[in-house]
C-alpha cells in the first residue's frame, strides 16, 4: 500500500491558486459572450442567430442575457462581425438575484452543499463533480458536499426541473435547516437552456424555489461554479448576469 502514498506525494500540488490569484491555464473555461458594439441591423441578425434569445439588440450594439446562453458558439463564429467572446479569464460570472442574498457573516469558511440534479444533460453535474478533483479542490476553501439536506447550508441545483423532480427538490429544500441559500447552476436551471419550458420541464428553477445565486453557462466551468459558491459565501463580489452595451461604453 505504500506505493499509493509515494505516488500521491510525488504528484505534487495541483490545486489552482484561485481565488487568491486568477487562473490562466488553457481550457479551464469556455468563456461567455460579451456585449459588443455593432450596427443595429447586424445586431438584429446576430440576435436571430441565437437559438435561445440570449442576445438582445440594443441601441449601440448587442446586449447579452447570460442566463440564456447555451454555448452553441453560433454568434462567435461566422464571417460577419462575430460577437466578442472572452475565453479563459471569463469565468467569474455568478450573480445574485434581486430577491436573493449571500450568507452574510453566518457562514463564510465552512459550507456544506447538497447537489440536486433536476434534469440536465449531465455536463453541469460533471463540472460540479470536478470541484473535488485535485485541480480545484474545493475542500481547501471550506466547501463540502453532503448527501443529506439535514447537514446542508447550500442547495446547488442543476437541471431544467422536470415534472418528476419537483417533489424531490421541494422535499430537499424543506428538509434543509435555516439559514440556507440556493445556488442555481447552468443555463438549464436559469432559463431552461435549449430545452426551454415544455410539458416536462419548467424552464428553470427560479419560479419554483427562491434562488439566491445564479451561475450561467452550459455548462459553467468548475471555476465559475466555484466563483458562485464564493459569492454565496460572501467572499467574492457578484457579477452582472445581464451584460449591457451601455455599461461597457460608459454611455448612459
Amino acid at each position: 500500500m505504500s506505493q499509493w502514498v509515494i505516488k500521491g506525494l510525488r504528484s505534487g500540488i495541483k490545486s489552482t491558486r484561485y481565488p487568491r490569484t486568477s487562473e490562466t491555464a488553457p481550457g479551464i473555461s469556455p468563456g461567455l459572450p460579451v456585449a459588443t458594439p455593432m450596427s443595429a441591423e447586424l445586431a438584429q441578425a446576430m440576435a436571430a442567430r441565437c437559438p435561445t434569445a440570449a442576445l438582445e439588440p440594443a441601441r449601440t450594439g448587442i446586449d447579452v442575457n447570460l442566463r440564456r446562453c447555451v454555448h452553441c458558439f453560433r454568434c462567435a463564429r461566422g464571417g460577419d462581425g462575430a460577437i466578442g467572446w472572452e475565453r479563459e479569464r471569463d469565468f467569474e460570472c455568478a450573480g445574485v438575484t434581486s430577491h436573493g442574498d449571500n450568507f452574510g457573516r453566518v457562514f463564510t469558511r465552512s459550507i456544506h452543499i447538497l447537489v440536486v440534479d433536476t434534469g440536465d444533460c449531465g455536463a453541469c453535474l460533471n463540472e460540479v463533480k470536478q470541484l473535488n478533483n485535485p485541480y480545484y479542490n474545493m475542500h481547501r476553501l471550506g466547501f463540502f458536499f453532503t448527501p443529506t439536506p439535514r447537514h446542508a447550508d447550500v442547495l446547488l441545483v442543476v437541471g431544467a426541473l422536470t415534472e418528476h423532480m419537483r417533489l424531490p427538490l421541494r422535499k430537499a429544500y424543506d428538509a434543509m435547516p435555516t439559514p440556507k441559500r440556493v445556488v442555481a447552476v447552468g443555463a438549464c436551471a436559469l432559463s431552461g437552456g435549449i430545452f426551454g419550458p415544455s410539458f416536462m420541464c419548467a424552464g428553470g428553477v427560479g419560479d419554483f424555489l427562491a434562488v439566491d445565486v445564479e451561475v450561467p453557462g452550459n455548462p459553467p466551468a468548475p471555476l465559475a461554479i466555484l466563483h458562485g459558491l464564493l459569492v454565496v459565501a460572501g467572499r467574492k463580489p457578484p457579477a452582472p448576469l445581464y451584460r449591457r452595451i451601455e455599461e461597457v461604453d460608459g454611455q448612459g
Binding site: R150, L167, P168, A175
Partner: peptide, 10 residues
C-alpha cells in the same frame, strides 16, 4: 417539525 428525509420519494 418536518417529515423524515427519505431521499425525495413521495
Amino acid at each position: 417539525r418536518r417529515t423524515v428525509w427519505d431521499g425525495g420519494i413521495r
